[in-house]
C-alpha cells in the first residue's frame, strides 16, 4: 500500500466498487477485444450489481470500460450515448449468477468479424477487480499486472514449453503468478500467467507457435 491508495484514485463517482471497479472490468474486455471492431455486448449483472446498477451508473461504467475509457474519464456519464454513436449495440440482463461474488458482471461480446468471447469478473471493493472466467474457462487475475492467457490442449509438457520459452528467450522475464485450469483431462485448458514489468516484443507470437497452444492473449495492466 502507498499513500496514493488512500488519497486517490481520481475517479468518476459515485462508488469505487460499483463505478470505478465496473470500468476496470469493462477494460478487461477492451483488452480482450484488442482493437477489433465491436458490434454488440450482452452484459449480465448479478447480485448487488443487478439491484443497484442504475443509481451507481454501473451500466455506463462497464460500457465505458469496454470502449477503452478509464475510471477517471468524464465520458463515463455519457457512455450509453457514446456506444450508440459508435454503433455498438448493448443489452443489460439481470440474472443471479450462481456462487458469484455479489458484484459480478458477465460480458459477452460480439465482433464485426464474427468473433465473440465472454468474460466474467467481480468488483471486489475499493475499485479492485477479480476476473473469474474468460471464454468459459476459470481464470484468476486482478489486472494489476500484465497478464498472459494461454489457451491450449491439456497435454504433458505444454506448461514447461511455455515457461522454458519465457526463461530461455527472455531471461529478464519473471512470472509473479501462475494459474492453470482445464475442462477435462486432455481437453481445453488455460494458463493465467502474471508477469513483472513489460512483456517483451514477439513473446505472444512465440507462445502461439508452441505445439498444442491454440491462442495466447496479453491483457496489459488495467
Amino acid at each position: 500500500m502507498n499513500v496514493f491508495d488512500i488519497i486517490g484514485p481520481v475517479m468518476i463517482g459515485p462508488s469505487s466498487s460499483h463505478t470505478a471497479g465496473a470500468v476496470r472490468l469493462g477494460r478487461v474486455v477492451n483488452k480482450l477485444i484488442d482493437g477489433r471492431e465491436l458490434e454488440k455486448v450482452e452484459i449480465t449483472l448479478s447480485g448487488s450489481f443487478a439491484q443497484t446498477y442504475k443509481g451507481h451508473g454501473t451500466d455506463r461504467a462497464l460500457l465505458a470500460g469496454i470502449m477503452g475509457y478509464h475510471s477517471y474519464s468524464p465520458e463515463i456519464r455519457d457512455a450509453l450515448n457514446i456506444a450508440r454513436q459508435r454503433g455498438i449495440a448493448y443489452e443489460f440482463i439481470k440474472e443471479d449468477i450462481k456462487d458469484a461474488h455479489p458484484n459480478t458482471a458477465r460480458i459477452h461480446y460480439f465482433l464485426a468479424d464474427g468473433g465473440e468471447g465472454v468474460m466474467q469478473g467481480a468488483s471486489v471493493g475499493g475499485g479492485n477487480i477479480l476476473v473469474n472466467q474468460v471464454d468459459g474457462m476459470n481464470v484468476s487475475f486482478n489486472g494489476d499486472n500484465n497478464t498472459i492467457l494461454v489457451m491450449h490442449r491439456d497435454k504433458p509438457g505444454v506448461i514447461a514449453a511455455v515457461t522454458q520459452l519465457m526463461h530461455w528467450e527472455y531471461a529478464d522475464l519473471n512470472i509473479s503468478s501462475f494459474h492453470l485450469s482445464r475442462q477435462s483431462k486432455g481437453g481445453e485448458a488455460i494458463m493465467t500467467i502474471e508477469i513483472d514489468g513489460q512483456p517483451p516484443e514477439n513473446l505472444m507470437e512465440a507462445i502461439r507457435k508452441i505445439q498444442h497452444v491454440s491462442n495466447a492473449i496479453l491483457i496489459r495492466r488495467i
Binding site: 481520481v10 463517482g13 462508488s15
Partner: peptide
C-alpha cells in the same frame, strides 16, 4: 454531491467520504 452525480472526485480515502478532506 459531485460524486453522486457521476462527477470527477478524489477518493479520500473512499468515494463516499470524498468531501471531507
Amino acid at each position: 454531491g459531485c460524486n453522486a452525480s457521476m462527477g470527477r472526485i478524489v477518493a479520500a480515502p473512499t468515494a463516499g467520504s470524498c468531501g471531507i478532506l
